[in-house]
Amino acid sequence: MSIFIDKTTRIIVQGITGKEGSFWTGHMIDMGAKVVAGVTPGKEGERVREVPVYHSVARAQAALRDGGEDEAEAAMLFVPPRFTKDAVYEALDAGVRKIVTIADGIPLHDQIEIRAAARSMGAQVVGGNTSGVISPGQSMLGIFPYWIERVYKPGSIGVMTRSGSLTNEVTAMIVEEGFGVSTLIGVGGDPVPGTRFAEFLDDFEADPDTNGVVIVGELGGTMEEEVAAAIDEGRFTKPLVAFIGGRTAPKGKRMGHAGAIVTGNAGTVVAKSEALTAAGALVADRPSKVGTMLRSLIAEPR
């Protein structure tokens, strides 16, 4: 099994006819994703990999209903950052409740409004500034090099991450140790991610095929501390290993991701590590230790 998406998840791709959109829609389908419709304003009637294209999400949903099919429940956005808020609202208003946006550069105030709107409607937006979500062997909403076998393999470890490149690095360590991934969720590197680490813990806790979780965090914000609180409160009881980048980053400097900055006393890697360790999680100070730490917690055959 998996969380957020599986092979039955019906997906609409917004921005499907663009260069990135059409290329990655192909890879999503190859990975098993059930892409039922695409949207690009002005391109209704075209097809991408046999997927019908519509002017709008609402028109795509209507066509699915008219054809006797269920509506799409998830949307993958290949939409530039400055139009992302509009695309998210369009999907929300057309009844979509799971939305993934990879856009890097969404305006900060848009990020706030996107998260506020999604929460008020009981929806989850994942991203932006992320590689997306993948349940290896089942489905993918995003842009992962799943074809590199030493990095992406189906298995029992849930992964949540703030960084795409670092995820490849850490996932390779998980796979090297003989594990695989149930679902990987890139919450993204922005200061206001649509959905936060701790908000996926209930699903990972409930998923019978997830035996443990790895979080790939970094300096800045409070998402790692929220995970520690969830463990403390007993909401999450499975083994958890964290790697957190930016331990030696100087205060006040933005390290790559917009969200990766220590301001004041909040957001240091030391504080995050202490909170997680106190809650009973293991914290790796280097990616290479993640696999062996998992192995020390999970007696799963190699």
């Binding site: 991450t161 703030r162 490149s165 590197g189 930016g246 030696t248 980053a249 100070d285």
Partner: peptide, 16 residues
């Protein structure tokens, strides 16, 4: 480096 998270981690590793 390519990738913000990876670059930040390499920064740490160099210091370590």
């Amino acid at each position: 480096c390519a990738g913000a998270g990876l670059a930040t981690t390499v920064f740490d590793l160099v210091n370590y």
